[in-house]
Amino acid sequence: MATGTIRYWAAAKEAAGVPEEAAAADTLADLLAGIGRNAALERVLRRSSFLVDGAPAGTRDPAAITLPEGFVVEVLPPFAGG
């Protein structure tokens, strides 16, 4: 199991209650299943996009995205602005 960091932005940060945290998971799907600890964060996660080590996860199946040791996953909820 890889260990790394999750960084929350905007509404995700507010819902998580922290700007970042350590995590351990094999895939992005495992990681997401483990961090949905409250209803507000679960709602934000469903609408968010994700960067894994700077690369967009896009529409790929989160179960097919393997997390390397030392990963950084950025949780990017939709936000307004230009």
Results as ranks from 00 to 15, higher is better:
residue 1 M to E: 12
residue 1 M to Y: 13
residue 6 I to R: 01
residue 7 R to K: 15
residue 7 R to F: 06
residue 8 Y to T: 12
residue 8 Y to G: 07
residue 9 W to C: 05
residue 9 W to R: 11
residue 10 A to H: 02
residue 10 A to K: 06
residue 11 A to G: 05
residue 11 A to I: 02
residue 12 A to T: 03
residue 16 A to M: 13
residue 17 G to Q: 07
residue 19 P to F: 08
residue 20 E to G: 08
residue 20 E to Q: 15
residue 22 A to K: 15
residue 22 A to R: 15
residue 22 A to G: 13
residue 23 A to D: 12
residue 23 A to Q: 10
residue 23 A to K: 07
residue 24 A to R: 08
residue 24 A to D: 03
residue 25 A to C: 09
residue 27 T to S: 13
residue 27 T to Y: 10
residue 29 A to I: 07
residue 30 D to S: 14
residue 35 I to E: 02
residue 35 I to A: 05
residue 35 I to Q: 07
residue 36 G to E: 04
residue 36 G to K: 03
residue 36 G to V: 03
residue 39 A to I: 03
residue 39 A to S: 12
residue 41 L to R: 01
residue 42 E to V: 09
residue 42 E to F: 03
residue 44 V to H: 01
residue 46 R to D: 08
residue 46 R to C: 06
residue 47 R to Q: 12
residue 49 S to H: 13
residue 50 F to C: 02
residue 51 L to K: 01
residue 51 L to Y: 05
residue 52 V to Q: 00
residue 53 D to V: 08
residue 55 A to Q: 11
residue 57 A to N: 04
residue 58 G to N: 08
residue 59 T to Q: 14
residue 60 R to L: 08
residue 60 R to V: 06
residue 61 D to L: 04
residue 62 P to H: 08
residue 64 A to N: 06
residue 64 A to S: 14
residue 64 A to Y: 05
residue 64 A to G: 08
residue 65 I to V: 11
residue 65 I to D: 00
residue 66 T to I: 13
residue 66 T to Q: 09
residue 67 L to S: 04
residue 69 E to L: 10
residue 70 G to Q: 05
residue 70 G to E: 07
residue 70 G to H: 07
residue 70 G to V: 04
residue 71 F to K: 00
residue 71 F to R: 00
residue 72 V to P: 00
residue 72 V to T: 13
residue 73 V to D: 00
residue 74 E to H: 15
residue 74 E to K: 01
residue 74 E to A: 14
residue 75 V to L: 07
residue 76 L to Y: 04
residue 76 L to N: 02
residue 79 F to D: 10
residue 80 A to Y: 04
residue 81 G to C: 07
